[in-house]
Amino acid sequence: MSQVMDHGIYWLCIVLMMIGLYTVISRDNLVKKIMGLNIFQVSVIMFYVSMGKISGGTPPILVPKDQPGAAEVVYSNPLPHVLMLTAIVVGVATTALGLALVVRIQEMYGTVEEDEIIEMDRTE
């Protein structure tokens, strides 16, 4: 039990990751696939953000030296957050491109269900 409680945030990430990955694999609807991909990416973003948190850490904004107790202040690590800004941009770009492709597929095939598309390609 302590295994679960101590690593709560990781379990959350893993559960989200699996929900996302399962959606990508199991759904035939292409839009749902993209949404699954999004959930999958969000789980990784959460994992990174949790990594930067230090227990008792404050946001990494420099406390002036002359302020009382400035020497004992512990800062959280801002780097993972910054990395995730980039990853979020990548995720948005991927989603946009994926949805654009879905729109084109809908125009060309008249459906966004993968099993129907495969069937149409086979009989063609």
Binding site: L21, V24, L30, Q41, T94, G98, L101, I105, M108
Partner: peptide
């Protein structure tokens, strides 16, 4: 389009 889409899913994973 379908090839690009499935590559997008695989590649993103």
């Amino acid at each position: 389009l379908r090839a690009a889409f499935s590559y997008l899913v695989m590649g993103t994973v």
